[in-house]
Design a binder for these strands. Structure first.
Lengths: 145, 145
DNA sequence: TTATTAAATAATAATGTTTATAATCAGTAT
DNA sequence: ATACTGATTATAAACATTATTATTTAATAA
């Protein structure tokens, strides 16, 4: 079965003036088919067999294009590189402090947080972000750091 | 009036094997007296009159020491540098997308988020982080980007 | 007070991610 | 065919942060 969200993303790009190139398609496809939250370098390395001559700048450029189109979200943590998430629906992340694993989870109704922040700080609030940190099951049981 | 939290922080460092140096004291004092959330470079620049020969590595080293001692918290956002917060009590931040201003706010009772994440993901949860993004009053009214 | 020693500093180089630049290339329209 | 627009590649540059190493210093005890 094909990936519906990928098709919608391609459609959405076609409706703007964004050209579809093989590299662009491959990056988008990789993002929408992968379960994890890859870095730009992960994507670059995963596609080097398919595109031996692709530049890392192409990956960054296209991730910016996708971000601006609202198709992917950039996740920034303290250490090193950004990660990219093709799931742009509202959800949060649980992150393992030891191995960096990221697990999605849903939690309803934090709209009131935004409302409170609006009142307290006088901001026009657009969105929010939340992460929970801890130790994942694998790192808890094994010592396989 | 002196800063109580600074005194406690100094005391807490003294109780470990961390030596007190003039640079270290100045960095800590700056952090605890400043209302904002400075970057390492902000700190470096603010102290260059006092310590013309201080190395930027010294700032980073000491921020790490303070972080490990639980005296400051590192805040990482997408763009550029980390920011450091001497307020280690539980609170959240409202961040202006346009000018980067950061305002603290409190919101009670997100413990259940941690509990849910524990169950959903099987993690041993340690803490969480939340930020609200929007436009601050200044950027809303004026066009002074 | 002086000596000792482990730790901190300064200066610098190195690392790693991301962005900027310039030349080339591909597709589309004229 | 030619010109135009935007994408890609290759490379250099920018930037924050960390590592390295020689030198200096704070804490401790003789």
């Amino acid at each position: 079965m094909e990936n519906t969200e990928l098709r919608e993303a391609l459609q959405s790009l076609k409706s703007t003036k964004v050209r579809m190139t093989p590299q662009r398609h491959a990056i988008l496809e990789f993002l929408f088919n992968c379960e994890s939250h890859p870095t730009a370098d992960d994507i670059y390395k995963s596609l080097e067999d398919q595109f031996p001559n692709m530049s890392v700048a192409t990956v960054y450029n296209n991730l910016r294009v996708f971000k601006e189109a609202g198709l992917v979200r950039e996740l920034t943590y303290g250490d090193s590189s950004s990660r990219f998430d093709s799931n742009t629906s509202d959800h949060y992340h649980v992150i393992c402090d030891e191995c960096g694993k990221i697990v999605d989870f849903h939690y309803p109704g934090l709209d009131e947080v935004e409302t409170l922040a609006e009142h307290v700080a006088g901001f026009k609030v657009r969105n929010h972000r939340m992460e929970v940190y801890g130790t994942c099951p694998d790192c808890r049981s094994g010592q396989q750091h």
